[in-house]
């Protein structure tokens, strides 16, 4: 055990100070600026006393923001469920594969995570656009007569979210399924349980921590996603992360962008806290 107090301080202080300065302090500034007002100048806002509730009134008064929030939560929820439905069998099959194969199968789940996220989302635009690969193939086969609307709508956004975050679901599920004690399943079989029954009453309950962790790892970043709704979405599929981006870069309304960031942090605070508990146990 490293007992020296000075060593402890030397190890702890540099990252602590870095995070206070570049992680915590910025949030306090965002909170402050959300109570400011837009102005023409550099920087384009003013802070006064008493604090201005102007941007918060805009946030509460314009249904655009409420719709964007609704979309974010809805799309993130659907994407999480799809990831679970596809990711669970994948993790299950990998966990049951023989040792050497298992490493390779796992590697192929992680590999996309190492390649550019932006490029992977962009790759879908070539597949989904009206004159893209899928539509051209279906037209050529004579299965459809006019191109299907596959992107710039909710379908495109959810597909993009599932595609981007699927590995985040598979990995924690694999971690819990791999540790599962096989003798429990043997015991269930010896006692006369069908494979289906054994799965439902042994495997599934024991993998709940993995399901929870995976779902949160998909849901939280998906709800705040910007690239996917921007490249695969349309005017009807605004999500909160995209709205924040537009407020900041297009409208140059920093106080409203700040208020949006605060609202995201508050609303995502609950799943974030759940995730911390899931990891702690």
């Amino acid at each position: 055990m490293i007992e020296s107090k000075r060593l402890r301080a030397g190890i702890l202080l540099p990252p602590y100070l870095w995070l206070l300065l570049f992680f915590l302090a910025p949030f306090l500034i965002v909170l402050a600026i959300s109570f400011g007002e837009t102005a023409i100048g550099v920087p384009p806002f003013t802070l006064g006393w008493p604090p201005s509730l102007f941007s918060w009134e805009i946030l509460a008064g314009d249904s655009l923001y409420l719709r964007a929030w609704g979309n974010s939560l809805l799309f993130a929820t659907i994407a999480t469920l799809c990831c679970l439905l596809l990711g669970y069998p994948m993790a299950y099959a990998i966990a049951r594969a023989p040792g050497r194969r298992r490493d390779l199968l796992l590697l192929f789940v992680i590999l996309p995570f190492w390649t550019s996220f932006l490029i992977r989302v962009y790759a879908w635009t070539g597949l989904l656009r009206p004159n893209g690969t899928i539509n051209e193939a279906l037209l050529w086969l004579g299965l459809i007569e006019a191109p299907l609307p596959l992107m710039n709508n909710a379908f495109g956004v959810v597909l993009g979210l599932v595609y981007s975050y699927l590995p985040f679901m598979v990995l924690p599920l694999y971690a819990t399924l791999e540790k599962l004690d096989a003798t429990l399943l043997e015991a269930a079989a010896d006692l006369g349980a069908t494979p289906r029954r054994a799965f439902l009453s042994v495997t599934l309950p024991l993998s709940l921590p993995g399901i929870l962790a995976g779902s949160l790892l998909v849901f939280i970043p998906a709800a705040g996603e910007f690239v996917v709704p921007d490249l695969l979405g349309g005017p009807d599929t605004l999500m909160i992360g995209k709205v924040l981006w537009d407020e900041f870069f297009t409208n140059r309304d920093w106080p409203v962008a700040s208020a949006l960031a605060v609202s995201m942090l508050v609303l995502l605070g609950v799943p974030l806290a759940l995730l911390r508990r899931a990891f702690a146990s």
């Binding site: 965002v30 949160l216 996603e225 910007f226 981006w245 962008a257 974030l272």
Partner: peptide, 13 residues
């Protein structure tokens, strides 16, 4: 896991 638009905006500010 925090959406990057939040960290990005706050660091810029």
């Amino acid at each position: 896991v925090l959406p990057e638009v939040i960290t990005g905006l706050s660091l810029l500010l």
